[in-house]
Write a protein that binds this DNA or RNA. Sequence first.
DNA 1: ACCATGACGTTTC
DNA 2: CGAAACGCCATGG
Length: 113
Amino acid sequence: MKNEDDNFFKQVYKVVRLIPKGKATSYGAIARYLGSTKSSRMVGWAMNNSHFEYEYVPAHRVVNRNGLLSGKHHFESENTMQNALEKEGIIVIDNQIQNFVKVFWDPSIELGL
DNA sequence: ACCATGACGTTTC
DNA sequence: CGAAACGCCATGG
């Protein structure tokens, strides 16, 4: 990676780690919380690099706005993400989080914007 | 230096 | 209402 001034990434990781168990958020929500609503792609990119982070990042709690497990292919195995979510009480069917609205965790609200 | 791609989302037609 | 285009930032060819 680059220097530690990657405030953007750091905040993403920080927020992701703050996601409580049994909850999930979206890339857009994080991007908006960071101030760039349309920078959702960077969040996803950050998640891709999250594997290089020293501290574990619960990326399985981050999905797209539809609650779809878009990035499950990036985990150790495709079952890893869904299994982790179900283990926390989140029901996932066909790579889609069920009752996503209920488990949705918006940092802009929860963390107070 | 330019074009293409990516764990996405919003806006426009 | 559904599909397409654009925006965002970084990385790789």
